[in-house]
């Protein structure tokens, strides 16, 4: 369910000139997309609804600080992401992992070969759908925000590497590295639950 930014109903010039109706037209067209991205960050329906409202309010109050070096909708999304991050910092139930733990969840190699062996996964046989979702959310919650948000933007939002880099203010290379490390860490966390052969 990708959510490509849509700016078809966004009249940036009118909005920046203080046209409230133009701003509200943007609210109407952007609310669904913004709701999904914030929901994917916080995984809490009520919080996401409230953060959407706060995002647009902050955007409205700070329109004069929009510099025009990105689309207005991307700027609004950035505000939403920052609010979602703050919410997570205040409400996240567990300590996100440190870099040392992250490193331990990456595969080990010796002379160019994996040091461990892997059993094929069969998630549909080893866990019910609800249980699979719970395991994945638990694993995602263990990741630090900088890794988790790359998963949200690339794998759930299906944003391009370029868009993700722009939204997070990091290089495309950093997006790719974080995405790979985050997926590998998730793989390690999920492996005990989904390997089809426990022998």
């Amino acid at each position: 369910m990708p959510n490509a930014p849509s700016s078809s109903r966004v009249d940036t010039e009118a909005i920046l000139n203080g046209d409230r109706a133009a701003f509200e037209a943007m609210v109407e067209s952007e609310t669904p997309r913004l709701f999904h991205i914030i929901l994917r960050y916080v995984n809490d329906d009520e919080a996401a609804r409230s953060l959407v409202q706060e995002t647009f309010l902050q955007a409205y109050k700070n329109l004069d600080s929009f510099r025009g070096d990105s689309q207005l909708t991307s700027w609004v999304t950035g505000i939403g992401i920052n609010l979602a991050r703050s919410w997570l910092r205040k409400n996240k139930r567990q300590q996100p992992m440190d870099e040392e733990t992250m490193e331990r969840l990456q595969p080990d190699f010796r002379f160019g070969r994996y040091t461990g062996s892997f059993e094929p996964w069969d998630p549909e046989q080893t866990a019910e759908r609800a249980e699979r979702k719970e395991l994945v959310h638990k694993a995602l919650d263990e990741l630090s925000d900088s890794y988790r948000e790359v998963i949200v933007l690339r794998d759930l939002e299906e944003r391009s590497t370029k868009e993700t880099a722009e939204l997070l203010g990091i290089s495309r290379g950093a997006v790719r590295v974080r995405l790979h490390r985050a997926r590998q860490a998730l793989r390690s966390l999920l492996d005990p639950h989904f390997a089809s052969d426990f022998s």
């Binding site: 369910m1 999904h36 929901l39 994917r40 995984n43 329906d45 595969p107 070969r113 994996y114 062996s117 892997f118 059993e119 094929p120 996964w121 998630p123 759908r129 699979r132 979702k133 994945v136 959310h137 995602l140 998963i151 794998d155 759930l156 997926r183 590998q184 998730l186 793989r187 999920l190 492996d191 989904f194």
Partner: peptide, 24 residues
């Protein structure tokens, strides 16, 4: 076979994340 299995798990991880998407 090791790399083949690892690739299968890597792809399955992405699929599982998509399946668990709160927006679903």
């Amino acid at each position: 076979e090791t790399c083949r299995t690892y690739l299968q798990q890597y792809r399955a991880t992405i699929d599982l994340v998509k399946e668990a998407d709160p927006a679903n």
